[in-house]
């Protein structure tokens, strides 16, 4: 992986909706570069005989039967919501549709 520069950090911060100051961007670019280097050393240790893995636990097919379990009431569901109306979560208008 290429080194992480300040622009990359600013880009990620914007995507993650995290506001960062100029100083924070500078500092984080340096810290992330060190972390990426540390992770890179893993690929040096792993030879061609080690397959890529996305999961540390050697399990597959952990399934649930298709049987209805518990639900919340609307009141419970909304109990932690900052705002609600008509049994629904009330959120600010967001123009950018995902």
């Amino acid at each position: 992986m290429a080194a992480i520069n300040r622009d990359d950090v600013a880009h990620l911060a914007r995507l993650a909706h995290i506001e960062m100051s100029a100083e924070e961007l500078d500092r984080m670019a340096g810290e992330l570069a060190v972390i990426v280097d540390a992770v890179k050393s893993v690929s040096e240790a792993a030879g061609d005989d080690v397959p890529a893995t996305s999961h540390p636990i050697p399990l597959s097919n952990v399934f649930r039967e298709d049987v209805v379990g518990h639900t919340f009431t609307a009141e419970q569901a909304l109990s932690g919501a900052p705002d609600s109306d008509e049994n629904r979560f009330k959120v600010p208008a967001i123009l950018d549709e995902a």
Partner: peptide, 27 residues
């Protein structure tokens, strides 16, 4: 048209009262 959701056991039903077919996973 399963009985329950993909990752939670809450019911997969159309047209019910809002926020009643949810549990902690869906939220």
């Amino acid at each position: 048209n399963t009985q329950t959701k993909m990752f939670s056991s809450a019911p997969n039903v159309f047209g019910d009262e809002p926020n009643t077919n949810v549990n902690e996973v869906d939220l």
